[in-house]
């Protein structure tokens, strides 16, 4: 749950009072034009960037409380980056294992078993496990990255435009995985420009413009019947780009 979040970089106010909640098992999607602070918001939630004011709770734990151990808290949040950010020097399976061995201090064998399960869940087959990130396709990389986050058994997954660095056909395999996870009950907060995907998975879509959530609601009404002019403009724009691509 996020309440009244503010963040500025220098004299640029990026987040200007953002509040919302992601209930357990629900999937929320954030959409909005570029540069409106979506990435910043996700980073704040994972405490990778310190918000200026406002509060964030993970169930009962207040993450913004200065006394808590943030690394301890972060392991309960899965973060999937736009650029995958796999560890270059580790094979796919080691990428998944490292959080388990270094952070959770699990023994190697146990970590490996969990890693294998996570990789299978995102449809990464055995023959790819010992490949290095540079030897994987974009879609495979992003799925390994999802497995890496998933293996930590997070309470919530944050996805920051997980497919915007991918070709359309690779996009599909990644979205498929995210959808399956969501259907399994994974609490998720997803930033994406994929309207079709959003309307399929989202319990609620929030439109973020200039550091504020300007409109929210169930996918259908938001996409096809937005109340606000700027939301309508935003959708027109991304649909048009989408059309051109097709």
């Amino acid at each position: 749950m996020v309440k009244d979040l503010y963040k500025r970089y220098g004299d640029k106010a990026v987040l200007r009072g953002v509040s919302f909640e992601v209930e357990k098992g629900k999937v929320k999607v954030i959409m909005g034009p570029s540069g409106t602070g979506k990435t910043t918001l996700l980073k704040c939630i994972d405490m990778l960037v310190k918000p200026d004011s406002g509060k964030i709770w993970l169930e009962d734990l207040e993450l913004t409380d200065p006394r808590i151990d943030v690394s301890e808290a972060r392991r309960k949040i899965g973060f999937v980056f736009q650029e995958f950010n796999l560890f270059h020097h580790l094979t796919a399976i080691k990428n998944v294992m490292i959080g388990l061995t270094k952070v959770k201090k699990l023994p190697r064998g146990e970590a490996r078993a969990i890693a294998e399960r996570s990789l299978l869940k995102v449809h990464i087959d055995r023959e790819l496990w010992d490949k290095y990130p540079a030897q994987l396709s974009g879609g495979q990389k992003q799925r390994v990255a999802i497995a890496r986050a998933l293996a930590m058994e997070p309470m919530i997954m944050l996805y920051d435009e997980p497919t915007s660095a991918l070709d359309p056909q690779l996009t599909r395999e990644v979205l498929e995985v995210i959808k399956e996870l969501a259907e399994d009950g994974m609490t998720s907060l997803i930033v994406t420009h994929e309207v079709g995907f959003a309307s399929e998975v989202a319990d609620e879509i929030m439109i973020m413009i200039d550091g504020r959530i300007v409109e929210r609601g169930d996918p259908r009404s938001i996409i096809y019947d937005p109340r606000r002019e700027e939301t309508r403009k935003f959708f027109n724009k991304i649909m048009k780009i989408g059309d051109e691509l097709r």
Binding site: D46, R74, R75, K76, F81, L86, F87, G99, V103, M152
Partner: peptide, 17 residues
Amino acid sequence: EENQMLAARALGMSNWD
């Protein structure tokens, strides 16, 4: 890349880890 550090922290690693 800066992002390697970011990803490590996102996993819950301490700076030293």
